[in-house]
Amino acid sequence: KRPMNAFMVWARIHRPALAKANPAANNAEISVQLGLEWNKLSEEQKKPYYDEAQKIKEKHREEFPGW
């Protein structure tokens, strides 16, 4: 399985609240909304998620060399 990128790290945190706020929305609609919200963030706001994604990527590389 591929390691999460910065957007996926961010979305994992924000998806539950968005789903709760929009109970009639299906998963595809929630994903679209998450994408729109992510694109509104500044690079500075995204930086912690890029940092976390890098850590996940490095850990994945250690656990699965050659993947």
Rank of each mutant, 00 (worst) to 15 (best):
residue 40 K to R: 12
residue 16 P to W: 02
residue 6 A to M: 00
residue 45 Q to F: 03
residue 12 R to P: 05
residue 2 R to G: 15
residue 55 K to C: 10
residue 53 A to G: 03
residue 25 A to H: 09
residue 13 I to S: 08
residue 7 F to M: 06
residue 28 A to V: 07
residue 61 R to S: 14
residue 23 P to Y: 01
residue 53 A to L: 06
residue 29 E to G: 01
residue 39 N to E: 12
residue 22 N to F: 09
residue 40 K to G: 06
residue 4 M to F: 02
residue 60 H to M: 15
residue 10 W to Y: 15
residue 56 I to G: 11
residue 43 E to G: 05
residue 54 Q to E: 09
residue 15 R to G: 14
residue 52 E to C: 04
residue 33 Q to G: 03
residue 49 Y to K: 00
residue 59 K to C: 13
residue 37 E to V: 05
residue 32 V to I: 11
residue 45 Q to R: 07
residue 18 L to T: 02
residue 59 K to G: 12
residue 23 P to Q: 02
residue 32 V to T: 14
residue 42 S to E: 03
residue 66 G to V: 11
residue 10 W to H: 04
residue 55 K to L: 07
residue 13 I to Q: 09
residue 5 N to T: 10
residue 66 G to D: 15
residue 6 A to L: 00
residue 29 E to M: 03
residue 30 I to H: 03
residue 44 E to Y: 04
residue 31 S to G: 12
residue 3 P to N: 09
residue 26 N to F: 02
residue 54 Q to N: 11
residue 23 P to I: 00
residue 25 A to D: 04
residue 6 A to W: 00
residue 47 K to Y: 00
residue 66 G to K: 13
residue 21 A to N: 03
residue 32 V to D: 13
residue 17 A to P: 05
residue 12 R to C: 04
residue 30 I to A: 02
residue 8 M to A: 10
residue 9 V to S: 05
residue 1 K to L: 04
residue 50 Y to T: 06
residue 34 L to I: 03
residue 53 A to C: 07
residue 47 K to C: 11
residue 55 K to R: 14
residue 63 E to F: 11
residue 50 Y to F: 10
residue 6 A to P: 06
residue 30 I to T: 00
residue 29 E to K: 03
residue 67 W to A: 11
residue 14 H to D: 01
residue 67 W to R: 15
residue 51 D to I: 09
residue 65 P to W: 04
residue 53 A to S: 06
residue 12 R to D: 13
residue 50 Y to S: 04
residue 64 F to V: 12
residue 56 I to V: 11
residue 66 G to P: 10
residue 57 K to C: 10
residue 44 E to I: 06
residue 30 I to S: 02
residue 28 A to T: 10
residue 50 Y to L: 08
residue 49 Y to G: 00
residue 59 K to N: 08
residue 44 E to W: 05
residue 57 K to Y: 15
residue 50 Y to Q: 08
residue 61 R to V: 13
residue 35 G to T: 14
residue 42 S to F: 00
residue 56 I to N: 14
residue 63 E to W: 08
residue 35 G to I: 02
residue 56 I to R: 05
residue 47 K to D: 01
residue 52 E to S: 02
residue 55 K to G: 09
residue 67 W to I: 09
residue 44 E to F: 02
residue 41 L to R: 00
residue 11 A to V: 02
residue 67 W to P: 15
residue 30 I to C: 02
residue 32 V to C: 07
residue 6 A to V: 01
residue 18 L to M: 14
residue 60 H to I: 09
residue 38 W to K: 00
